[in-house]
Write a protein that binds this DNA or RNA. Structure first.
Lengths: 227, 227
DNA sequence: ATTAATATATTTGTATACAACTTGGATCTT
DNA sequence: AAGATCCAAGTTGTATACAAATATATTAAT
């Protein structure tokens, strides 16, 4: 994605920056579901007028992370379990396509980044805000792995869907289970690295699918929300 | 999609109307690749200011149909053969998922609409503008078929990808081949109807995939464009 | 005549004032 | 006191003036 959206104009850079910032805040639950984002307030924070802010908010609405109501405000959307499961199902099927559609050779620097992130998983439990830290690492790992997707259209879709479900971790995960989940994540990254360094990268999609499937099961086991 | 985007506010209705209008114009080549869309001009046409028009243009840019350049204008994107093939490949794989993820039972009214559209295919050749007519019917048939997709996330994605490739028909198809292509389309719709009325709808995705695959082959056989 | 530089016109991006709408509270009625 | 009504404050949507950037035409230099 960042390859496609090659930063061009000044305005585009600003947009991307604010867009990614707000998206991250939503996904990390800095803005919890139901929270209101005031345009004026954001405009002040980013030292801009409402106009460019509105463009970002509109985009986030299209992506399903915001709901803008005339005269009322822009509200972070709620998570609904049926929707989460639906999107997860789709992500699982799409994962298989990673192997089929133009898989990319992992670079050494990618493997190195993954290894760094894997080690960081060990420190999640001792972090000041474990759940948030876990969500952060989840985000970073995802961004790494997306480099393996050669089909740009697929990549864009996977990204969109990821950000639609990524909130579930800090939202649903009980504080007591964070360390267990972190350990699982650590081993998952390890498996990915082993596969990638053994030149089996064209079956990475399969592995990723497995990880998603297991995550989906754990998700379904968590407390029911939404409809 | 039209179920999800349940028309709400006045502004949202206006947006949807203009958005779909412009998208259709691009897909039907009323706006050819490379053409410039002036905000001021569109604002005049729709009796609005530039502000809501810009929202529409931004959305079309995200969908890959426009490229907006500061100080220069908003230009309809060019078609590139590699991108078309890439998106087609993805659409083919996604088609299979229609059967897996919440397939919907076809309603009698849907079958009736399809039958009407099928008959309309016979009149394409004698139409005043055959290629455009063909593209129109292609659009309408697609909208019908999307009713069979129960997974909303999948539906949204299929729609997005469709509009990214739908332009190829009026763009690449030679005038002499329109009647041949129309006949093929006629029989494809026929096959779909037969399948749907035989209560075999859970395998509709497979059939759709076959149709896409054949279309993709014909596409590849057409004159090379882009890179 | 050709080319480079400049100026002007055109177009998109931003800021801002105002309109449309929603929400919460105050006031009045019963 | 409960409920309905109305008003006012606050928020998003739209229109518009201006800034920033680009493209085109003009002019000057070689």
């Amino acid at each position: 994605m960042s390859d496609v959206t090659s930063v061009s104009s000044e305005a585009e850079q600003r947009f991307q920056s604010i867009y990614q910032t707000l998206r991250t805040r939503i996904v990390l639950l800095d803005y919890v579901p139901g929270a209101r984002l005031a345009e004026e307030q954001l405009a002040e924070e980013f030292k801009l007028s409402r106009t460019p802010i509105r463009r970002v908010l509109n985009r986030l609405e299209v992506e399903g992370l915001l709901e803008i109501r005339h005269g009322a405000g822009s509200f972070v959307t709620e998570l609904s379990m049926p929707e989460l499961l639906e999107v997860f199902e789709l992500r699982m099927e799409l994962a298989r396509l990673i192997d089929v559609l133009a898989p990319r050779t992992p670079t050494p620097v990618l493997v190195e980044r993954l290894t760094t992130l894997q080690h960081a998983c060990l420190d999640i439990a001792s972090h000041s805000h474990p759940k948030r830290r876990f969500a952060e690492l989840n985000l970073e790992v995802f961004n790494c792995l997306m480099e393996l997707v050669g089909n740009q259209a697929l990549r864009q879709i996977l990204e969109q869907l990821f950000y639609r479900t990524a909130r579930m971790w800090p939202y649903l995960l009980a504080e007591v289970h964070v360390s267990k989940e972190a350990a699982l994540f650590h081993s998952e990254i390890g498996e990915s690295i082993r596969l990638l360094t053994n030149n089996n990268y064209p079956s990475f999609g399969h592995l990723y699918r497995c990880h998603l499937a297991m995550a989906c099961q754990r998700l379904a086991a968590m407390q029911t929300i939404g409809v």
